[in-house]
C-alpha cells in the first residue's frame, strides 16, 4: 500500500463546452510527497483540484485517488481522508471560529475536542469565540487551514494557502506542511510562484492554458528551462575576465564581474577562475523557481493566441 500513488491522473482532459480547462494531463503523487502546482490564473489549477476532489468528472482519461475514482460513490469513504482549502473562501460570517470548525468537524465525523485542538494548532484559540466577520484576512486563512487539517488527512489540497498570511504565519504554515509530510500526508500546493516555496516541495508541475509544460523536481525543471547559472566574482577586474580567452570559451555572457554560464560548463569556468591569485570570492547563483517558471512559460508555444 505504501508505494501505490495517492493520486494518479492518466491522460486527463476536462472541457467545458468549447473551452478545454485541462488538456491531456498525467501525473502521480506518492505518499508523503509535496507537489507544487504552478500557473497563472486560468491555467487549469483549480480544475485539476476539482477533478481530484471529485467535484467534477473528467471528459477523457482517468483520475484515481486513494484507490478509487473520486467522482464515484465508491469514493465516499475517502472524502474524510482528503482535506481541501479553497481559494478565497469566506466562512459563515455570523458564526464564531470554533462554531465554524465544529460544523465542519461534525460533517467529517470528528468531535469538538479535535476541532479545539486544531484551533490551537493554527493559533486562533484566543479569537475562537469571536464571530468570523471580525477576523482579519490572515485569521480567516488560518481558520481555513484548520478546516483542511481536520482528521489528519492522507491527502491535502491547498489552493493559495499563504495568501494573506504574514511572514511569521507563513513560516508556521510551512512548518505544519513539513510536519504533515513527515507523517505521510501527500500535499498538493496550488500557488503562484512565491519565494521560499521551493524549499518545501518535492516536485512541481507548471501549467499553462490547461497544458502541462513541465513536471519534475527543481533540478529537472532547471535542466528543462536550461537557464544560465550566474557566477559572481570579486577581486578580478572585468577587463581581465573579458580578455581571458581560455575562460570565455565556456562563458555565455560576461556582465561586469558576473559570468553567465551553462550548467555543464560550470566546473570548467570555476577551474579557470581559481587560477587568478587575487580572486577574493566566488558566489554561484542557481536560477530560482520563479526564473525557471518564467523561462518555461516563455518557451511554451503560444497556442491559441494569434
Amino acid at each position: 500500500m505504501t508505494n501505490t500513488p495517492v493520486v494518479s491522473m492518466n491522460q486527463v482532459t476536462k472541457s467545458y463546452g468549447s473551452l478545454t480547462a485541462v488538456n491531456n494531463l498525467s501525473c502521480e503523487l506518492a505518499p508523503g510527497e509535496v507537489l507544487g502546482l504552478f500557473g497563472h490564473n486560468g491555467a487549469g489549477k483549480t480544475t485539476m483540484m476539482k477533478l481530484i476532489l471529485g467535484i467534477t468528472s473528467p471528459t477523457n482519461g482517468s483520475v484515481d485517488v486513494l484507490g478509487a475514482k473520486p467522482d464515484s460513490k465508491a469514493a465516499w469513504h475517502i472524502r474524510s481522508q482528503v482535506g481541501y482549502l479553497p481559494e478565497n473562501v469566506s466562512f459563515y460570517e455570523h458564526l464564531t471560529g470554533i462554531e465554524v470548525l465544529n460544523y465542519f468537524a461534525k460533517l467529517k465525523g470528528f468531535n469538538k475536542q479535535h476541532a479545539k485542538d486544531l484551533i490551537a494548532q493554527v493559533g486562533l484559540t484566543e479569537a475562537m469565540n469571536r464571530a468570523v466577520k471580525t477576523y482579519s484576512k490572515g485569521m480567516r486563512q488560518r481558520l481555513g487551514l484548520a478546516q483542511a487539517f481536520l482528521g489528519k488527512p492522507k491527502l491535502l489540497l491547498l489552493d493559495e494557502p499563504t495568501v494573506g498570511l504574514d511572514p511569521v504565519a507563513t513560516t508556521e504554515f510551512y512548518q505544519q506542511v513539513d510536519n504533515l509530510k513527515a507523517h505521510g500526508t501527500s500535499i498538493i500546493l496550488c500557488s503562484h510562484v512565491l519565494p521560499g516555496v521551493e524549499r518545501h516541495i518535492d516536485r512541481a508541475i507548471i501549467l499553462s492554458k490547461g497544458q502541462q509544460l513541465a513536471c519534475g523536481n527543481l533540478a529537472s525543471l532547471r535542466a528543462h528551462a536550461n537557464l544560465d547559472i550566474r557566477i559572481k566574482t570579486r577581486g578580478v577586474s572585468p577587463s581581465e575576465l573579458v580578455n581571458d580567452s581560455q575562460l570565455m570559451t565556456h562563458v555565455e555572457l560576461c556582465h561586469d564581474t558576473d559570468l553567465l554560464v551553462k550548467d555543464e560548463n560550470k566546473m570548467n569556468v570555476l577551474r579557470e577562475l581559481v587560477k587568478y591569485r587575487h580572486l577574493d570570492d566566488i558566489h554561484i547563483e542557481q536560477p530560482d523557481l520563479n526564473q525557471v517558471y518564467q523561462q518555461i512559460l516563455s518557451q511554451a508555444p503560444q497556442k491559441g493566441s494569434i
Binding site: 476532489l53 474524510s80 482528503v82 473562501v89 466562512f91 459563515y92
Partner: peptide, 13 residues
C-alpha cells in the same frame, strides 16, 4: 458566492 458550497461538496455529504 462565499465558496463554502464548493467546500461542503468535498465533504462526505
Amino acid at each position: 458566492e462565499s465558496g463554502t458550497l464548493l467546500l461542503l461538496l468535498t465533504y462526505p455529504i
